[in-house]
């Protein structure tokens, strides 16, 4: 089966399955967060899984999407257009700074992306006249419920956001799989193996890296816009360092090489804190231990490890 079609079918089935078994709005709420995170992490998969570039600043792009969606409507821009402008703005910024930043590698790339993310975070926390400062701001406008009312469905708010974000996550995943299997995706993988070998194959390495960076920034920004709309309130912490780390962790935990890794990583790190409320005092220790142990025992992430296991069983 065509990989993009397979991805579509599996993920769409999961979105529907969730809706069938969820007993309350709370589950839809957690499901919504899983899909938003899946979308953001899919962008990390393009950057880290396909090309092998580490960004510790992607929360900055996430925040640009979120804040554009929060700020622009008060200047008369409709929410949907605001979200699109936010995504475009994040993409533009990534394209501009991508070239010089992506000449760096390893830990130098990590500090440069981290610095970029921190700068965005700082602007959002300091410029209170625009962003409400560290206390955050209310996101006016869009209500997903109204969208479904147009087609005669009366859903609860949490439920309607679940469907909207699920749709975006599925579309984002299909797009990423398609990208990965295009000639351009193969070029990216060649760069992942070796910059030098890739350029000797005639690949414009700098351009390809910058493209991947831009695309992953747009993913993060769209996810940010969705979070802003679904939450109705945002603070600069969506652009903070720990959020960047969280996105990369989700990707690596699940397996950065595939969009299924993005989903599994997003699911675990979103659901785990909800399960761990019972052990509130130990939450951080458990979370930290899970991160360390997964990386030691399943270096390529959960999904590849499980696939290997399944293959070995079959033999």
């Amino acid at each position: 089966m065509n990989p993009a079609l397979r991805t579509f079918l599996i993920l769409a089935a999961l979105v529907v399955a969730g809706a069938l078994i969820f007993p309350s709005s709370y589950y839809y709420r957690v499901g919504t967060l899983v899909w938003i995170n899946t979308l953001a992490v899919t962008g990390i998969v393009v950057l880290l899984g396909y090309v092998g570039l580490v960004s510790l600043g992607h929360a900055g792009f996430f925040a640009i999407g979120a804040y554009a969606t929060a700020i622009l409507p008060s200047y008369g821009v409709p929410s949907v257009l605001a979200a699109i402008l936010g995504a475009a703005g994040a993409g533009l910024l990534a394209a501009i700074v991508g070239r010089p930043i992506l000449r760096l590698s390893g830990y130098y790339l990590a500090i440069a992306t981290l610095g970029l993310g921190m700068l965005i975070w700082m602007v959002l926390s300091k410029e209170a006249w625009l962003t409400g400062g560290p206390d955050g701001m209310t996101v006016m406008g869009a209500n997903a419920r109204d969208l479904f009312k147009l087609v005669g469905l009366n859903l609860r708010s949490a439920e309607s956001w679940y469907w909207v974000t699920g749709t975006f996550a599925v579309l984002g995943a299909v797009l990423a799989v398609n990208l990965g299997n295009s000639p351009w995706g193969r070029a990216l993988r060649a760069i992942h193996d070796s910059d030098v070998a890739a350029s000797s194959l005639g690949i414009d390495v700098a351009k390809a890296k910058s493209m991947a960076f831009t695309i992953s920034a747009v993913y993060a920004a769209v996810a940010g816009a969705l979070l802003a709309l679904a939450n109705g309130y945002i603070t600069p912490e969506v652009g903070g360092f720990m959020h960047s780390v969280e996105m990369v962790t989700m990707a690596v935990l699940g397996g950065a090489a595939s969009v299924f890794g993005a989903l599994v990583g997003a699911l675990i790190l979103t659901a785990l804190p909800q399960v761990l409320t019972v052990f509130a005092d130990y939450e951080h220790m458990i979370l930290g231990a899970v991160m360390v142990l997964t990386m030691i025992l399943m270096r390529r992430g959960l999904v590849p490890a499980l696939v290997d296991l399944a293959k070995r069983r079959r033999k």
Partner: peptide, 16 residues
């Protein structure tokens, strides 16, 4: 990237 995650995971663990 795995080493970054491991040391960050360790820092979260130690904080807890």
């Amino acid at each position: 990237v795995s080493l970054i995650i491991i040391t960050i995971g360790a820092s979260i663990f130690l904080r807890g």
